[in-house]
Design a binder for these strands. Structure first.
Lengths: 231, 231
DNA sequence: CATAAATGTGGCAATATTATGACATTGAAA
DNA sequence: TTTCAATGTCATAATATTGCCACATTTATG
């Protein structure tokens, strides 16, 4: 879990970073909103700790920008005043929690834990479907279900993953090595021919429903490729 | 909106009461858990502010009792120590927020507002109706009762929860881990096989009434899934 | 066309995962 | 206290999946 700390006081950054790292989080810190935003617009951390008042871009503005990218990253505010809490935790800004300086590091850690827990619960309860469609193929990731021409294909997890990886990059060849790395957890090593076997089973299952299925192409000497839809 | 303050320091009760009343809340206060519980068991307020340590029945015990009556009343803890926050905000106790003494009254007011807002959001998201129907399955959440084809299924609480979680997300695969997180309070760890056992008992009970019941599917290598009704 | 390398395929043994029954423990109610 | 339902865990059986071999077929290339 990666946490970003944005505060203009070096000592405070140091203190928090130390505590967070000690708790097993990965931590990066920025001294103002400008620097933080530069990084965030590339890749968001899993949680953000923001000082309200900072030179350059303050916490409120940074928060607004973050919320445009993600509605869900937990954001915890730090402040030395207590007369802006309303706005911060209100819908206008969209902070998730708030702590007044000076604060107890222990309490900070606990509040972070609570935020993560709440976040996790939200994710687990969300019913948002992630559906991927490519020509006649439809994948429901959360349901672990695949359809060809609206017919359910009964796949094992390995087959599902292979189909997912291949179809997500239509037209691009995936070597057996790449496929294995994606399908298997790090450290497991199997023969490269094993991929062939899974591809065989995958093709067979779909062709049993539609014998004209030929979207999974073999690229001799390289690997496999999911055919790019013509239209 | 009625808020109850439970604290053994008269001055603090007075201060908080004054502020709350001034903000337009109706406020009642108690000097220990015993007195508060006597009142709560008759009628719960809309929000509870609890001191952790009190003579007679302390805040933690009172909170546990309240949670048996209502899972949703927001409970905000006050404490002079910061080493129990973990447990308090964890699911074991089930507090919703926490403030360390001494605290700013303004911050208290804001946190109360946030709790009410969160509460409201939860209520709006949760199906207002107490009854959930999915195909032949009917669940009465409030009564912890389940029906299959209008016949009552005699379920234990654990079984009911599992059925609820699975059927609330028809089609989606729930891993054992996710199921455990939802069924058990945080911190309790049981073997993942235990879920299997409960699923077994759940299936068996329903199949005893309708042997064609097969809505709970096993997704090999992943978890369980409640079958999506064909429509 | 001949050859070697690469890939397809069927089947089987090895693994991994899940189902189930039995049993001990817990906790609440009588 | 006794009783009984509920629960967690374990051992074992039942399944599903997987890896890989052996052999067939295809492909690239001289």
């Amino acid at each position: 879990m990666k946490i970003s700390v944005v505060d203009d006081e070096p000592d405070l950054r140091e203190t928090i970073s130390y505590a967070l790292t000690h708790e097993g989080y990965v931590c990066e810190s920025f001294r103002d909103g400008i620097h933080a935003w530069k990084a965030f617009s590339q890749k968001l951390p899993d949680l953000v700790i923001l000082d309200v008042s900072m030179p350059q871009m303050d916490g409120l503005e940074l928060c607004r920008r973050i919320r445009k990218i993600s509605e869900t990253v937990p954001i915890l505010f730090l402040s030395s005043r207590d007369d802006e809490i309303d706005r911060i935790l209100g819908l206008e800004i969209g902070g998730d929690d708030y702590m007044c300086k000076p604060f107890s590091v222990r309490e900070l850690l606990v509040r972070i834990k609570v935020l993560f827990r709440r976040q996790k619960a939200r994710q687990e309860n969300s019913k948002t479907e992630d559906i991927y469609q490519l020509g006649n193929l439809i994948l429901h990731y959360g349901k672990y279900m695949a359809f060809w021409k609206d017919q359910l294909i009964e796949l094992t997890v390995t087959e599902f993953l292979l189909l997912k990886i291949l179809s997500q990059n239509p037209g691009f060849v995936k070597t057996r090595e790449v496929l294995m790395n994606q399908v298997y957890p790090e450290g497991t090593y199997v023969s490269a021919r094993t991929i062939d076997t899974h591809i065989k089973r995958l093709r067979k299952k779909i062709q049993k429903m539609d014998e004209s299925f030929d979207e999974i192409e073999t690229v001799y000497g390289v690997g496999y490729r999911y055919k790019q839809p013509s239209a």
